[in-house]
Design a protein around this nucleic acid. Structure first.
Length: 306
DNA sequence: AATATGAGAGGGCATATCCC
DNA sequence: GGGATATGCCCTCTCATATT
């Protein structure tokens, strides 16, 4: 008996071009769109889709009415694939050929009005000095979901970032602490004790309209309860109310520095845990040189001493 | 070594099919 | 009807093999 070597034929090498094609198909959600993007005819693209289906063993995109919708398998592949392709593009292009002086791009940053008020001007100046054709759009904070980052409507998210999707990249920009804010001639200033602090009506800042937060928890551990009479969605509204009433509010110190001008800030009478202001982005932008530059200038501006 | 030949991949055009 | 995808047919190009 001849001992035959068990060497089996190697599987044919994977056509990596199909990954680029699939990325285009998933991004465009249509054969025609992907064909235009890759300078192919729609039939050629349709055939590439057929090859991808054969390669993956999944329909990838199925007809829904006139268009196509991705299968769960395709959805699961989408982000990794996007990252893979953009990494490959960056590899080929090289990271150095980012020409900031000619970069024309609009970045969407989701951030609170506090962040815009405190860092917006510095960020805009720094961006303009390095990349004069780049535009920044600050989008208001909505429900803190990852969809905006996932589908690319949002380039970066700045703020107190809680539970995001597991794939979301996160980096702490700085730590902040809560301070109380009242108008300058407020009666509370005669003596700030937990008891007197709790006796005035409060304004809470919550994009979700919450009346209770970490300050209430801190007060509760010391046996105090405050009455939050008003919940507003941004810092400016809270400050406007405080400016013209006996209401008391609390907000992150550094994040609202310029906005609190003309008002009186004070240390809270009970210790409240600090908060981390972070930058979040989707991994698809991880290797994107322009996006890296954006992250860099955000970090730089936040790292400057006030 | 140079040339011819055949298979296979992949693209475009025309057209079928589906659905709004 | 018209937009979108899928497919039949034919073409070109490449590569491996056969032939001179």
């Amino acid at each position: 008996m001849i001992a035959k070597p068990t060497a089996r034929r190697h599987a044919p090498p994977i056509d990596m071009n199909l990954l680029v094609t699939l990325d285009a198909l998933l991004s465009e959600g249509s054969v025609v769109g992907a064909a235009q993007r890759l300078n192919l005819s729609p039939p050629a693209m349709s055939r590439q889709l057929a090859r991808i289906r054969h390669l993956i063993g999944d329909p990838v995109l199925v007809r829904a009415g006139r268009g196509l919708v991705p299968t769960p398998r395709a959805e699961a592949l989408r982000d990794r694939l996007r990252r893979l392709v953009s990494d490959a593009e960056a590899l080929v292009r090289g990271e150095d050929d980012l020409d900031l002086s000619r970069l024309e791009r609009t970045f969407v940053i989701r951030a609170s009005d506090g962040f815009v008020g405190t860092f917006g001007a510095a960020l805009a100046s720094l961006a303009a000095s390095q990349a004069p054709h780049v535009r920044l759009r600050f989008a208001p904070e909505d429900a803190e979901d990852v969809e905006g980052l996932r589908d690319g409507r949002i380039d970066a998210d700045v703020g107190v970032i809680g539970t995001m999707g597991p794939e979301i990249r996160l980096q702490t920009l700085f730590h902040d602490r809560f301070v109380g804010v009242v108008r300058p001639d407020h009666p509370l200033l005669a003596g700030i004790t937990p008891e007197r602090f709790s006796s005035f009506p409060h304004v809470s800042v919550s994009r979700r309209g919450r009346f209770a937060g970490p300050i209430d928890e801190a007060l509760a551990t010391h046996g105090f309860t405050r009455f939050v009479a008003l919940a507003v969605a941004n810092f400016a509204d809270a400050l406007a109310v405080v400016r013209m009433s006996d209401h008391v509010t609390a907000m992150p110190e550094r994040l609202t520095e310029p906005a609190r001008a003309g008002l009186l800030s004070f240390d809270l009478p009970v210790p409240v845990e600090g908060l981390a202001i972070s930058l979040a982005w989707h991994p698809r932008f991880e290797a994107d040189p322009a996006h890296r530059w954006l992250r860099g200038i955000v970090r730089e501006v936040c790292g400057r001493k006030p």
